[in-house]
Design a binder for these strands. Structure first.
Lengths: 356, 356
DNA sequence: TCCTCGGGTGAAAACGTTTACACCTCGATG
DNA sequence: CATCGAGGTGTAAACGTTTTCACCCGAGGA
């Protein structure tokens, strides 16, 4: 058995109430007793039992994070951002991914009841309705990259539309009249918004559009590879490819290289997300930069605010802006700046070292 | 206030003990009452309060995961593996990264006391001593990629030595007499083991070794870029570069390309980890494959066993084998198989879709 | 002198469970 | 018929906190 507050109280010659007051510094305690209690607690290696604590206070100092999957750099960045601010506020992180269907999400949601003070949820499967019916009554929640209806929830989204629009406008402005799109996963909200931005940019730029220019994809490298081959078979052949994310763009680059096409000479390529590797592929990949960890950090900030303010908290939806990062693959720049090298731009790397 | 067990008991016309028995199916309950209780519980949306539960049972159904950082694909893969098996056993995941120094780790360790049933720890800073003095008495723990002394702890390690040895032996066998090493981060255990493997392979293969062939690196792309430039300046110039991880190898490829060197023609390159992107860079990267998610999964299995068996559990240390993956960058194969394409090999991708 | 006030403290209730123990009722066994 | 065992159930203690309330004591104001 671990040492309890009673034990500390006994040894310090005070009541448990006083010890409790010291540890939460609530209520007045004389400087003398405070010191004595601290000394005893340290000697005994006392740590308050968090279960007992959260039983009585009904707070857990933990936030739950529900993700559709834990695959790839995107998610590790999100979690990183969340963890950073959670830790700064003294909160723990209860992470869960890998729920393939709605039922699994609902189970998970319920099993988190009582374990967390709030929830950050990112899921393409999840609409607001599934949340309202499964959330323990008014548990604060922040939606990440979810299609959101009305203002029933706090929500944070990447400006998918704006980013895609900007990139495609850029391509069109540099003379590309036929720009193919490699679409993201079917039911995915981000994918849909990026497609919307693509179409709007073509229209506003006066470029050609046709159904056949929009190629199927699922956000993975292999689908980008396949789609690029399809693009090459189109008649007339497009002069640029905009992929809905970088992984697919990299798959596409790989296919183009094998087909002997020069990039950007015969085919311009651009992606979305600006993953770290983007600047190290050949040719370096133009992309739409998204501060993913920032997304996580803000979501967490928002959640903690909601937890602390509870009733006063005003729900709102917000969009995270994106930024165009032009490198070699779109052929629109001289290639002087932003070369891979000793001082890469992008989110600063942590000092901590790791093996990959 | 949420609905409690008392409420359920009252409405079902039984005592709380019976309800408890139903929910834990411990003890005998007639089929009739069982059904009635389930019905009432469902109608009331009752979920047991986990704080109260773990207060009395002193179990939490959660495992803690302490990582040096949450950066990059390596960690997302580890967590993925852990999460998969944790979920299969009904455990939650309390994740924490971003502790830069030993003091932070210790704080974090202590603050997890009472919140988790066991700990998975991966940290270059952490030696066994720091654990023993800060862990709540005999909380089960599994060490991941940590230097481990004696058999005081369960530990899981990648076969860094073996993987590096195999790759470098391969290079040497194909005629490379001068093979440069881009080292990993200074104090990192994986880095040291890979270096050891490199040296042993050179020695056993009868190839040349000198201090100057070992170039500084820190596992990040940018350091690989820098180190490759240094390698080019060596006299005589090496004909192959072995990087301690793929990120640095990719940085090196980028530097070589800019310097106008052909890979693998004038310089062979190989990495370690086999991250997904490795097969999509130009030229595709030969690497040492590590089933990272498997590493996480096994660690979690091991931990849960330790939690459940408690006293009977036998501590042991284990090494996860690696596998050579030869692609274009080392120039040792004809290039027919393992081309980037519609059916990439490597760990199967999940069905779940994501935006990056 | 009496009252008030506030800093410092303790006793005890409450939080929502699990579980040891006791009880009852049957049917079977002696 | 007495005894036993077992299935089914309830009572109440325990888990380790926080927090309300009350108490004590000394200083200051009337």
């Amino acid at each position: 058995m671990a040492v309890t507050i009673k034990e500390v109280a006994r040894r310090a010659g005070v009541s448990v109430a006083t010890v409790s007051r010291v540890f939460n510094n609530s209520g007045p305690v004389s400087e003398e007793t405070r010191r004595r209690i601290h000394a005893v607690a340290k000697r005994l290696r006392y740590t308050p039992n968090s279960a007992a604590r959260s039983l009585i206070t009904s707070r857990t100092s933990a936030v739950g994070v529900l993700l559709p999957d834990l695959y790839g750099e995107f998610f590790s960045e999100v979690i990183r951002g969340i963890d950073r601010t959670a830790q700064a506020h003294g909160y723990h992180l209860l992470v869960s991914g890998w729920h393939n269907d709605r039922a699994a999400i609902e189970t998970m949601l319920r099993s988190m009841r009582g374990r967390v003070d709030g929830l950050i949820v990112m899921s393409p499967h999840l609409d607001a309705r599934a949340l309202t019916t499964n959330l323990p009554e008014n548990l604060p929640a922040v939606l990440l990259n979810c299609p959101v209806e009305g203002d029933a929830f706090d929500a944070l989204n990447i400006d998918n539309f704006g980013g895609a629009y900007e990139m495609v406008r850029h391509l069109v402005a540099h003379g590309h009249r036929r720009v193919a799109l490699i679409k993201g996963a079917e039911a995915n909200h981000d994918a849909q918004e990026r497609q919307r931005g693509y179409r709007a940019a073509l229209r506003d730029g006066g470029a050609e559009w046709s159904e056949s220019l929009e190629l199927a994809g699922d956000f993975k490298e292999s689908s980008g590879y396949r789609a690029a081959l399809e693009a090459l078979a189109l008649e007339p052949r497009p002069t640029a490819i905009f992929a809905a994310n970088d992984s697919m763009a990299i798959g596409a680059l790989s296919a183009l290289r094998e087909s002997g096409l020069s990039v950007p000479g015969e085919m311009a390529v651009a992606g979305f997300d600006d993953i770290p590797i983007a600047r190290y592929v050949t040719p370096s990949l133009s992309s739409v930069h998204v501060a993913i960890d920032e997304l996580g950090a803000r979501a967490c900030d928002r959640l903690i605010e909601a937890v602390k303010e509870k009733n006063r908290h005003q729900r709102r939806q917000e969009q995270l802006p994106t930024r165009l990062v032009l490198r070699d693959s779109c052929g629109c720049r001289d290639g002087a700046a932003d070369r891979a090298g000793p001082t890469p731009e992008g989110p600063a790397s942590p000092d901590e070292l790791h093996a990959m």
